[in-house]
């Protein structure tokens, strides 16, 4: 990463943007799976069996982690834009690490449940 961008605020932007893009890629597949339910139990059951594969479970874990990360960093952006700033030079930097930690913990809980 260029020295210009090696700071917390930019990393939070990257995390928020990339997790958002990943979720945007996921959503059509999510709706496709929901749509299968309308086409009969057999096709849905087939998809659900596919969703039990270990690789898909790992992908689900990534999805849950990214969703939490996107939520936490999105809340930070809303706070930046709607609330008064505590210090002019501090764009809520102290929200970034807890947000990343929350994503890790939620991902860990999910992983323990599926393991």
């Amino acid at each position: 990463m260029q020295p210009l961008r090696s700071h917390e605020s930019y990393l939070a932007f990257l995390g928020h943007r990339l997790s958002g893009l990943a979720l945007a890629v996921f959503l059509p597949f999510h709706f496709l799976a929901l749509g299968l339910a309308l086409e009969g139990a057999e096709r849905l059951d087939g998809f659900l069996a596919f969703a039990e594969l270990p690789l898909v479970k790992v992908a689900e874990w990534g999805l849950v982690t990214l969703l939490t990360l996107h939520l936490c960093f999105g809340i930070r952006v809303l706070a930046l834009e709607f609330l008064r700033w505590p210090f002019p030079s501090d764009p809520r930097l102290r929200w970034i690490f807890p947000g990343a930690a929350a994503a890790f913990v939620v991902g860990l809980v999910f992983f323990v449940q599926i393991a």
């Binding site: 700071h7 605020s9 930019y10 932007f13």
Partner: peptide
Amino acid sequence: HSQGNCTR
């Protein structure tokens, strides 16, 4: 996009 490069 609130990247913060300017403030930094």
